[in-house]
Amino acid sequence: MPLLITALITANRPAFATTAPTTQWLLPASLFRLLVVGSIIGLVVATLVIVLIWLKELRQGQVW
């Protein structure tokens, strides 16, 4: 999505959200691990699913 391409154009603008908030709830380590590992696994699965669907459609002549 194009909304944030601008970020790389406005190269020298400062980070805009590092001021200390008044309220905090830090994500526990277990959930952080789940988020990071889960997203990587999700990306792997998504890649494989697209390839497998493509192979199936290729065999059935339904790619296009």
Partner: peptide, 13 residues
């Protein structure tokens, strides 16, 4: 280009 550059940027900031 944003997803691969600005998403890491907002993750960082």
């Amino acid at each position: 280009g944003n997803t691969t550059l600005a998403a890491p940027e907002v993750g960082y900031t």
